[in-house]
Design a binder for these strands. Structure first.
Lengths: 187, 187
DNA sequence: ATGCGCATGTAAGTTGTTACATGATTCA
DNA sequence: TGAATCATGTAACAACTTACATGCGCAT
C-alpha cells in the first residue's frame, strides 16, 4: 500500500488537514497517485493510531475548525523504510487501450469522439503542467537554478515526467485517430 | 469495471480457458490491463452466470481437461454497450514518482539503484514490444500493409502506444538519474 | 434562501491481493 | 523423486468506489 506513503510525503512537504490533503490529491501529488477524501480520512485515522502522524486541533474564525496533521518520527521512519524497499515496475491500467482493441468487434468510428475527448483532457493537463513549471521553475519569477534545494529539484523532475507523459500521450492519440480514420475512409 | 470487458475482447480475439486467459494477461493484453488468475476465474464464473460467455468442456489427452470459454451474444452486446460509454481519462498510479518526491526527506542516493532497476525493466519491455512488432507487423515475414484487417491495425496502434510509453519512460528515468547524481556530486 | 467552499465522517458494495489447496502429466 | 507446466479453484483480507450524511459561514 502506498497511499500512506504518498500522504507522508505530502505532509512532510507541508502539514495540513484531511480536506487540504484531498485537494492536493486533486492536483499536484494526485497526478501521480489519485485518492478521494474518503480514502484519505480512513487512512489518516489508521496512521494516527499507528503513531505515524500527530494531530493538532486548529480553531478557525471564518471556517469550520480543522485537524492539522504532521508527520511524527515513527512516520518518518516508516517512509524511510518504504523508500529503501524495492517496488515492482508499474503494472499499467490503460482502459482506453482495451477499448481500442475492442473496437475491432464493434464500430471503430464510434470511438473517434471518445478518443478526441481524451485528447482534449490530456492537452488540458499538459497546459496545466506547463503553467506550473513556468510558475515554479522556468519562469522569470521562479527561483534561480542554483537556489533550488533538493526537494524542488525532485519536484521538478517528477513534473518533467508528467509533461513528457502528456506529450507522448497526445502524439499517440493523434496516431490512434489517424488509424481510426484510415479504417473508415468513406466517412 | 473493465476486467470483464478486457476478457470479452481477449475471448473475441480467441476463445480459451481461464488458464490461457491468465497467461494472456501476463503478456499481450495484460500490458494494458493486469489481472491474476484468481481474479479471472472469479469473473469468468460471474460472466457465465450472466450469460455473457459460453463454456465448452474440452477433453485433452496429454494435459488436464479444460473449459473453453467463448463470447455469447449477451457478452457481445455488453461489450458494445461499454464501448459506447464514455470513460474517465486515466487516473495514474505512479509509485516511483511518489518515491522520488519522498527522497527529498531521506537519502536521494539510495534511490539510484531502484531507478536503475526500473530503467532495466522498461528497457526489457521495450525490446519485447519491438520484437513483437517486427514479428507481427514490420518484419519481412509480417503480412503486407494492405493485408492487415481492422483488428490487426488496432492491435498495432495499441502496441505503438506501448512502445512510445516505454521510450518516453526510459528518457525520463535517464533524466531522473541525472538529477539524482547532480544532487550528490561528491559521489 | 440557495448554493458554494470548507470540513469531517459512515456504510455498503465491488475489486484486487495474498495465501492456501488440489491434482494431472512431462521431463530431467 | 522432484520440479515445471497445465489446470482450476477457495478463503481471508485489503483497498477502492459510490452514495449518503452533517454542519458552519459567506456571498448573491
Amino acid at each position: 500500500m502506498a497511499l500512506e506513503h504518498a500522504i507522508l510525503v505530502s505532509l512532510l512537504e507541508k502539514p495540513g488537514s484531511g480536506y487540504e490533503l484531498a485537494r492536493r490529491f486533486d492536483r499536484s501529488i494526485g497526478y501521480f497517485w489519485a485518492a478521494t477524501h474518503q480514502q484519505i480520512y480512513r487512512v489518516l485515522k489508521r496512521m494516527e493510531g499507528d503513531g505515524w502522524i500527530d494531530v493538532r486541533e486548529v480553531v478557525q474564525q471564518d471556517r469550520p475548525d480543522k485537524k492539522e496533521y504532521s508527520v511524527a518520527s515513527l512516520g518518518r521512519a516508516a517512509l524511510s523504510r518504504w523508500l529503501h524497499e524495492p517496488i515492482e515496475p508499474e503494472s499499467v491500467r490503460h482502459e482506453l487501450a482495451v477499448k481500442i482493441r475492442g473496437a475491432a468487434f464493434d464500430d471503430p468510428v464510434a470511438l473517434i469522439h471518445e478518443v478526441e475527448r481524451h485528447r482534449q483532457a490530456h492537452a488540458d493537463r499538459l497546459a496545466h503542467y506547463l503553467a506550473g513549471e513556468r510558475r515554479d521553475f522556468t519562469g522569470p519569477d521562479a527561483p534561480a537554478r542554483a537556489a533550488l534545494d533538493a526537494g524542488q529539484e525532485l519536484q521538478h523532475v517528477v513534473l518533467r515526467g508528467g509533461i513528457a507523459y502528456e506529450r507522448m500521450t497526445l502524439d499517440w492519440l493523434d496516431d490512434v485517430l489517424a488509424t481510426l480514420h484510415r479504417l473508415t475512409p468513406e466517412r
